[in-house]
Design a protein around this nucleic acid. Structure first.
Lengths: 161, 161
DNA sequence: CACAATTGAGTTGTGCGCAACTGAATAGTA
DNA sequence: TACTATTCAGTTGCGCACAACTCAATTGTG
């Protein structure tokens, strides 16, 4: 049915969706790097703080689920946040395998400063809030789809070739 | 005009567009990692090869412009591709500051194998080509906008607050 | 209860991405 | 023609992402 589009065409840089995605992520990263400089946070650290502000005390595992990160990334990241005095880590008494992470007073204090970050980013980018909401929803669906495709064997529907 | 949305709301994990973007990029990365395993390439290396297949010989600088990467990232990446025997680097005779990068025979041979990668990825994700085209265009505009905002001072238009 | 399997956090190693820097080559200018 | 400024590639250092691994704690099963 679909005439196979010229194979050559598929390998053009401009045609790689993931490349466009990658670039947008990095461009956004630059904006955030700037906005977060004063807070002394990297963007992933900022996301971790957001998760902790929002949910309160979390295990490393739960935090990893929320942020889509494994312990290999989170452990050193949390260690840096702890060194910065923003969080504390403590073995769970109920399950000694788990480690509970929670914000310190300094970490909570940072929350007030962080309020301005989304505002700054929105202003700098000048993007329409409703467009952003739509984009976010679209990306969410895309990620779910890709995760499903990554987890199982072939996705694309049961009747696929 | 727009009633400032609750500041608390802006710091919710689900509301971070960049987070959604980041996650989609990483989810896509997983798919590509799989698809590229046989070629022995990482995703950024794959993009570099695509650029070289498409444009032929390129300076490191030009390649960096195409891929949105600086020499700090490209130099070691190209060194790895050279070690793998896929590209060669050579000082330009016209301008001894520049280094020309081009594919080897092995690098060209890999092109045939790489033809299947976009097909595999498309099949695994099962995403509608027209949706993808639209998403790519949207992301392109977003990136341009973010780059402009990052380069200049405040973007958001001249009449912004 | 004993013991294998699983779970949770951490470590190690590799590669990417970026800032800040070095050093050589070229361009621009007094 | 000297001399400064810029350009280009590369290096260093740091943080993130991920695979593969370790080790202790817990769970499941006989």
């Amino acid at each position: 049915m679909t005439t196979t589009p010229d194979a050559e065409d598929l390998l053009r840089l401009e045609h790689q969706v993931c490349f466009a995605l990658h670039n947008a992520t990095r461009a956004f990263g630059g904006i955030y790097r700037d906005a977060l400089k004063d807070l002394g946070l990297t963007y992933p650290q900022y996301l971790a703080m957001i998760a902790l502000w929002q949910h309160g005390e979390l295990t490393v595992k739960r935090l990893g689920e929320l942020l889509r990160l494994d312990s290999g990334t989170l452990s050193p990241l949390l260690k840096r946040l702890e060194t910065a005095g923003l969080v504390v880590r403590e073995r769970s008494a109920l399950d000694e395998r788990s480690v509970l992470v929670r914000t310190t007073a300094a970490g909570e204090a940072l929350r007030a400063e962080a309020q301005s970050v989304p505002v700054t980013v929105a202003r700098r980018t000048g993007l329409d809030p409703s467009d952003l909401r739509e984009l976010r929803a679209l990306l969410g669906r895309l990620t779910d789809r890709l995760d499903a495709a990554g987890a199982g064997a072939d996705a694309a529907g049961p009747t696929d070739c």
